[in-house]
Computed example of a mutant assay.
Amino acid sequence: MTKSVRIVRFNEFGDANVLQIKHEDLPQPGPGEVLLRVEAIALNRAEIMVREGRYLWNPNFPAKLGFEAAGIIEAIGPDVDPEWLGVICSSIPNFSPMDYGVYGDVAILPVGSLGIYPASLSFEQGAALWAQYLTAWGGLVYVAKIRPADVVLITAASSSTGIAAIDLVKAEGGISIAVTRTAVKRDELFAQGADHVIVSDEEDLVARVEEITSGAGVQIAYDPIGGPMLALMMDVIAKKGIIVSYGMLSSEPTVLPLFEGFLKYATIKTYDIHEVYDDPSLLATAVGYVTERVKNGQFVPRISTTFPLSNIVEAHKAMEASNHIGKIVVVP
């Protein structure tokens, strides 16, 4: 077992350049924990917010970072089932960034944050699996209760969670309208399975939705942006439709369009994936749902670009540039 390992840490909030690779002694898992030998790390946009000090929880310095990794269990804590040793699995990011982080050659994780993914997936795909598809399940199945033939508007559609939402809507027999800012990603979103694509920098979003739905609007709007986008979501939502607001990427104020909501009897639901993570029964249901659809080929995590761990700063800059479709993966 390697005695010295690389761990990514940061000592202050800031841009990607605050990330530093440190050489440290091999950590040992404590009670309820395992040591994962990391084979792949999937970057998550929430990690930018953690790094900048804008997340729901702020870590203590020197801080670790990272929610999603896949690898092999190399060591276990004193009260962990030895059957976990040697298991290939990936992290379900239901832990706090104040306590854990997966950027490095190894990662200490709670045993309750492990998910065994189907053997058909690579380490890279396994790392990219849980966060995006569990988030989409929670927002579209659990919260919005998607039905066959529902029309679903998906903003930030080229993100990993947007891609997962396209896959899920198709699996449930719905109709997806993917929204992207530039035409560069249009063909890729169609290839991913989107039924319609709206390029918001070139097209009138409201007019295009009216055209696609013959004026009826969408039953579900799935949005991680907020800000001015919320008013547009209300403009396109159908009567008795639901807007699932699961992020706050916009830096502009989010104004609640109450008057329009009253006219449409619409629901606006704020949703965070921890609503699923914090309920063991709900999480087990979601994991089973995702696993089944990976096995039948409906869900395949899309990998955009791969970086070596030594280029973690460049990987973060690429994530912030938002020119990719799917997941950026880092390999130790």
Score class of each variant (00 low, 15 high):
88 I>M: 11
88 I>A: 13
91 S>H: 04
92 I>H: 06
96 S>L: 12
96 S>Y: 09
98 M>T: 14
98 M>V: 15
100 Y>N: 07
100 Y>W: 10
100 Y>M: 01
101 G>P: 10
103 Y>W: 09
103 Y>H: 12
104 G>I: 02
106 V>S: 09
107 A>E: 09
108 I>F: 05
111 V>D: 00
116 I>C: 08
116 I>S: 02
120 S>G: 03
122 S>T: 15
123 F>Q: 02
124 E>V: 11
129 L>P: 07
129 L>Q: 09
132 Q>W: 03
136 A>I: 03
136 A>V: 01
137 W>P: 09
138 G>E: 01
138 G>D: 01
139 G>T: 04
140 L>M: 02
140 L>C: 07
142 Y>K: 15
145 K>P: 04
145 K>C: 05
147 R>H: 14
148 P>A: 14
148 P>Y: 06
150 D>P: 07
151 V>I: 14
156 A>F: 13
156 A>S: 14
158 S>N: 13
159 S>E: 09
160 S>N: 09
161 T>W: 05
161 T>E: 04
162 G>L: 07
163 I>S: 11
163 I>P: 00
164 A>H: 02
165 A>I: 00
166 I>E: 12
168 L>S: 03
168 L>V: 08
169 V>G: 02
169 V>T: 10
174 G>N: 12
174 G>R: 09
175 I>E: 06
178 A>S: 12
183 A>I: 14
183 A>V: 13
189 L>G: 06
189 L>T: 03
192 Q>E: 15
193 G>P: 10
197 V>C: 01
197 V>G: 05
198 I>M: 05
201 D>F: 11
204 D>G: 10
206 V>C: 05
206 V>Q: 12
207 A>T: 10
208 R>P: 01
208 R>A: 11
208 R>Q: 14
209 V>T: 07
209 V>G: 09
209 V>I: 15
210 E>A: 11
211 E>L: 09
212 I>L: 12
